[in-house]
Computed example of a mutant assay.
Amino acid sequence: MTNPIYTTQEIQERVDRYIGQFKEGYFSPLSLMARLTEETGELAREVNHYYGEKPKKETEKEKTMEEELGDIIFVLTCFANSLDIDLSDAFHTAITKIETRDKNRWTKKDPST
C-alpha cells in the first residue's frame, strides 16, 4: 500500500487536528526550537552512521533517515502552526530568494544532455 501524498496545507491541517485533541496544545516556540534541534541531531547521527566513519553499535536501535526527516517535518509543522505561518507561503518566499540570489552561483547543466 502506498502512502498518500499531502500538500503543505494538508500536512498543517492534519498536525493541527492531532495537536488540537490535547489541552496542552502546541509547545512554546522555545520548546519547539529545542525539539527541532533534537530531531536534527538525530538525523545527523543517522547520516553519520550511514555515510560517515562512525558505524552503529550492535546494541543501537535501527532507525532510518526517512523516519528522522518525518520527525523534523512534524516538529517544523508544529512550529509553523503555533506561529500561524503558512508553510507554502514560507517556502515560496525562500525558493524565490534562492532562485534569484543563487541563479548563477553554480555551474548549470547543459540542457542538451
Rank of each mutant, 00 (worst) to 15 (best):
D86E: 03
R35W: 09
N104W: 00
K103H: 14
I19K: 00
T96A: 13
T40F: 04
E24W: 04
A80P: 11
F27D: 11
V75H: 00
I85V: 11
T40L: 04
Y50G: 15
I95H: 06
H49N: 05
T93D: 10
T93A: 11
M65E: 04
E67R: 02
E24T: 04
E38K: 09
L76G: 02
D110I: 05
D102H: 14
R14Q: 15
E67V: 01
N3V: 11
E62L: 15
K63E: 07
Y51Q: 07
M65Y: 01
V47M: 06
K63A: 03
Q21S: 06
P4Q: 01
Y6A: 00
C78H: 01
D84S: 04
D89N: 13
D89Q: 15
M33A: 15
K56G: 02
T107S: 04
E67M: 05
N48Q: 15
Q12D: 04
P111W: 03
K56T: 05
S31N: 14
A80K: 05
P4W: 00
E42D: 13
E13D: 15
V15L: 07
L69F: 08
N3M: 11
K108C: 08
Y51E: 03
N104A: 00
I73K: 02
G25A: 06
E67N: 06
P55K: 06
K23Y: 01
S82G: 10
T2C: 06
D86G: 05
E42I: 03
E58V: 09
L30V: 14
E67L: 07
D110N: 12
K97H: 03
S31E: 15
R105P: 10
N81A: 05
K97S: 02
P55N: 12
M33V: 13
D89W: 12
Q9V: 11
E99T: 07
T2K: 12
D71H: 01
S82I: 06
H92I: 11
K57E: 08
L76N: 04
T77P: 11
T100Q: 09
C78E: 08
P4D: 01
T8N: 13
T93P: 01
T113P: 02
K23H: 03
R35T: 14
F74A: 07
K61H: 09
F74L: 11
K103R: 15
D89Y: 13
L43N: 08
E99I: 05
Y50E: 14
D71P: 00
S28G: 05
R14K: 15
S112M: 10
G20V: 02
L32M: 06
N48S: 14
K54C: 03
H92N: 15
E60P: 12
V47A: 02
